[in-house]
Simulated scan of single mutants.
Amino acid sequence: MPYIDVNQKRLNYADSHPAGAPPGGLTCVFIHGLGSSQNYYFPILPHLTSTHRCITIDTYGCGRSRFTGLLQDIGSIADDVVKVMDGLKIQKAVIVGHSMGGTTALHLAAQYLERVVAVVAIGPVHPTPSTGQIFEKRIQVVLEDGMEPMANTIPEAATGSRSTPLQKAFIRELLLGQDPAGYISLCHVVSAATAPDYAAISLPVLVIAGDEDKSAPLDGCKHILAHVSSSTKTLEVLPGVGHWHCIEASDEVGKLVAGFAQAYRG
């Protein structure tokens, strides 16, 4: 799998069509959430790659993008994604983000409107003071005991009633694969995050929510959608799904993203 150097970071990514998007197709760029990696999106990609170019990135400090101690925030992650697009000569893309990545995707759309075709925010976190307190506590746990407490609790606590043991095992493996220092860095990112400038987002937005998601509750998703200025905005709610949507309901999410992107094909 290839690497690209941006902003003093070496980021790992996968590209379904390195030569460019198929005729009439779009490029979709995927930003994962905390405790995850680009592999989170692979269950939905079969719904997209026959038509669109899909680029999945390991955020700095996650997966195979090694953490080297640099400070980061939502804005720097968004800028990393834009620099990846620059390096791959991608002028515009559909930006897909999950959880923290959904917040980043919305921030990117607000700050780099000319680089974005549309946004898909999957379980986006609307930052609040209480969100920060939760992640400050999590930092202390990981400092003391590493990633195992997260792997032992999150797969059960953050999934919905439809989730299977195999899906929970996949989530557990994503968590155990995290560098604790990189995970702590991103906990600080979430803890310190402020809401994107929703009103600056005038392009099409799809928000996908789980009706059993405790990490990105439905009220927060509705708040985000109410405050973006786009005239084309949609909320899709998945029954029985928690916070790991692309794993818990891969076919439904894949079809929603593919259907949304279909409207903006060239």
Rank of each mutant, 00 (worst) to 15 (best):
Q178T: 04
E148G: 06
G240Y: 00
F170Y: 07
E136L: 13
A151K: 02
P129K: 04
P129R: 00
V190I: 15
T194D: 08
A199D: 09
Q133I: 04
P180Q: 05
A226T: 02
H188L: 11
F170C: 12
I122S: 08
P149N: 06
E248K: 00
S191W: 10
A151L: 07
P155C: 13
C221L: 09
T164E: 08
G220Q: 02
S163K: 00
G123M: 11
R138M: 11
P204W: 05
G182K: 00
I184S: 02
L175I: 14
E144W: 04
P165V: 15
H245E: 05
G146R: 06
K222E: 15
H223F: 04
K137F: 12
N152C: 11
S163C: 09
S230R: 02
H223T: 01
G177E: 09
R138C: 10
E156K: 08
G240S: 00
V119A: 05
A209K: 01
M147F: 12
V189T: 05
P124Y: 08
A158N: 08
M150H: 03
D197H: 03
H245G: 05
I224W: 00
L143V: 03
H227E: 14
I184N: 02
A249Q: 06
V190F: 15
E212M: 08
F170I: 15
V141G: 10
F135T: 13
V120W: 04
A121M: 08
H227N: 13
A200Q: 03
Q133P: 00
M147T: 11
E236Y: 07
H227M: 12
R138L: 14
A216T: 10
P204A: 04
T128P: 05
L143I: 03
K233P: 06
D211G: 14
S215W: 10
K168T: 15
P149Y: 03
S250R: 04
S250L: 09
N152P: 05
S130T: 04
V125R: 01
K168Q: 15
P165K: 02
L225H: 00
E148A: 12
C221D: 09
M150D: 03
L186A: 06
I122G: 07
Y183L: 13
T232V: 11
M147C: 13
I184D: 00
A118D: 08
A192R: 07
E156V: 15
P127K: 00
S191C: 13
P180A: 05
Q140S: 11
T131W: 14
H227I: 05
C246P: 11
P196M: 01
G177A: 07
T159Q: 00
C221K: 02
R172E: 11
K233H: 04
G132R: 01
Q167T: 12
P127D: 00
P129I: 02
A151D: 05
A169V: 14
E252V: 11
L174A: 05
E173F: 11
V237W: 09
V228M: 02
T131E: 13
Y198L: 15
V205S: 15
C221W: 01
P155Y: 01
L218F: 01
S229E: 02
D251F: 00
L175W: 09
V120I: 14
P124F: 07
A169C: 14
S215H: 13
K137D: 09
P204H: 07
A181T: 12
